[in-house]
């Protein structure tokens, strides 16, 4: 049972990511959605049994980078992998995200191959 939390202030982008994950043959049983970092923290507190978090950077209320710092400070017993999916693609931003606790990084726009290559470490592929 694989469960993925999608965090992006764009509902359209959340739909596109879900569709692309399904089309590339990666197995996800349940998608949970959040529109900003604060909502995402609530979802983690409600259900910590997440297999992966896909996280936008620029969002209102709480940004992706603020969320990942807050998530890592919770010291959860099971470390949930976090992959940033964002338009922020500079080396500085990638380094900042990884130093803050993100595990992977995918820059929007992305191809199906790039999505599969990045998420393939965390999700099973049919």
């Amino acid at each position: 049972m694989s469960k993925v939390l999608l965090v992006d202030d764009s509902a359209v982008m959340r739909k596109i990511i879900q569709r692309n994950i399904k089309e590339t043959g990666m197995i996800v049983d349940e998608f949970i959605e959040a529109g900003d970092g604060k909502q995402a923290l609530d979802k983690v507190n409600d259900d910590g049994a997440l297999d992966l978090i896909l996280l936008d950077w620029n969002m209102p209320n709480m940004s992706g980078i603020e969320f990942v710092k807050a998530l890592r400070s919770l010291n959860l017993p099971n470390r949930i992998p976090v992959v940033m999916v964002t338009t922020e693609g500079s080396e500085t931003k990638v380094s900042e995200a990884k130093e803050s606790g993100a595990d992977g990084y995918l820059t929007k726009p992305f191809t199906a191959d790039q999505l599969r290559d990045t998420l393939g470490d965390y999700l099973l592929i049919k």
Binding site: N58, T87, G89, K108
Partner: peptide, 9 residues
């Protein structure tokens, strides 16, 4: 957003 992000880089 995506065009601006790509252009920025």
């Amino acid at each position: 957003n995506m065009i601006a992000g790509t252009l920025k880089n």
